[in-house]
Design a protein around this nucleic acid. Structure first.
Lengths: 220, 220
DNA sequence: TCCTCATGTATATACATGAGGATAC
DNA sequence: TATCCTCATGTATATACATGAGGG
């Protein structure tokens, strides 16, 4: 419920601050054992690979460095006001290796193997550096580099940490329609923008309604 | 674990059959009560609206008819070999109301209010009828109408029912690497294409590996 | 034929927007 | 006039299924 950082966007867009936080996996499967070779069929635990406490994996890849870069990349991308989609499209359009939005997403979330990450890192690093340079020469330049419209200055998507979501859900179950003051308190407690929290509740109520009407009697 | 239907595609594409099944919500919240007006803050149950057993909702909308159409729509869309994205783009390009991929998705899954569904239905119905007509005049015509490439004949995405996924997960936990025979049996049991089940296991293993390496130690 | 691995496309979900309407000042 | 709500619906992100190369 704490590790959030408020980032101010570099571009001129008047925007509420962005919240970027270290994603923290809720599940912590950590049974060792790397390969299966007994006569017994492999179970889930056996597939999950060993802990690498040194920060390096078996291929000598610096995991810590990659984690740091992934976080850094996201912050810088958002500061430039770019979406994963834009980065993906730009990479595909530009020279060099092409990647899709979901590839960028997986990289930022580290839902890839260290090897893939290691391979992607320099590509993204180079691209981002160039994008930042263009941006310094004016936002027009950046948009041209990225190959998109100036865009309608949409607020950047907040991403709540799993912990924050859990906390919000707990509040929601107790009271789905908090008062202004309660919203303020919750926002402060979780360290997110108040408006973002308010909208979260609106959306939550809406989803709940929508998914429980036409659907309910569908059990065939 | 049973309600699946094998649909053969209308177009000439040589493709394994598609599986379309009635999605069945796992959660069944059904506490009545429509509006909140006590001094107590509303809780989740109170937001969920009443059951409409007659098949009609309070606005006189025929829910049953909508459910049927939603299902029908999906089947026909897939038979034409179209994706939700294509439908969305086509609707946006054509005259008439525009809708996005996620709107189509929500319609098919019925994650919308009956009112919205009622409004969307004729739009989709009309569009689909036209698309089917074009298709009869040859697939070229359809693609032109949709406004896309002939596309690379990708297999259509299977969608497993929640029940099927649950069953698969249970098998997976017991044995993450089933033998050929086991796969065959599971596929038969669940009534899905064998290849699709095999790939499901491959993907499951991969996901498990990817999400438990770089990520595990990120708990900040 | 089947696996793993990298990575894509299609779909689903989460956050955002804006119109229209109550309150509550 | 300032909030805040609901509702329809969008965009951005995340996840699930698919593909294809390389290997045995």
């Amino acid at each position: 419920l704490q590790p959030t950082q408020q980032i101010q966007p570099a571009p001129s867009i008047t925007q509420p601050s962005v919240v970027v936080a270290n994603p923290t996996p809720a599940n912590t499967p950590a049974t060792p054992q790397v390969h299966v070779s007994s006569s017994e069929p492999p179970t889930v635990g056996q597939l999950v690979s060993k802990s690498h406490s040194g920060g390096y994996d078996e291929d000598g890849i610096n995991l810590e460095e990659i984690r740091e870069f992934a976080k850094d990349f996201k912050i810088r991308r958002l500061s430039l006001g770019l979406t994963q989609t834009q980065v993906g499209q730009a990479l595909t359009a530009t020279e060099g290796p092409a990647y899709s939005q979901s590839a960028i997403c997986r990289f930022e979330k580290l839902d890839i193997t260290p090897k893939s990450a290691q391979k992607l890192k320099p590509v993204l690093e180079k691209w981002l550096n160039e994008a930042e340079m263009r941006n310094q020469e004016g936002q027009q330049n950046l948009m041209e580099f990225v190959g998109g419209e100036p865009s309608k200055k949409r607020k950047r998507r907040t991403s709540f940490t799993p912990q924050a979501v859990e906390a919000l859900n707990t509040y929601f179950e107790k009271n789905a329609l908090p008062t202004g003051q309660e919203i303020t308190d919750i926002a402060k407690e979780l360290n997110y923008d108040r408006e973002v929290v308010r909208v979260w509740f609106c959306n939550r109520r809406q989803t709940l309604k929508n998914t429980s009407k036409l659907n309910v009697f569908q059990i065939p």
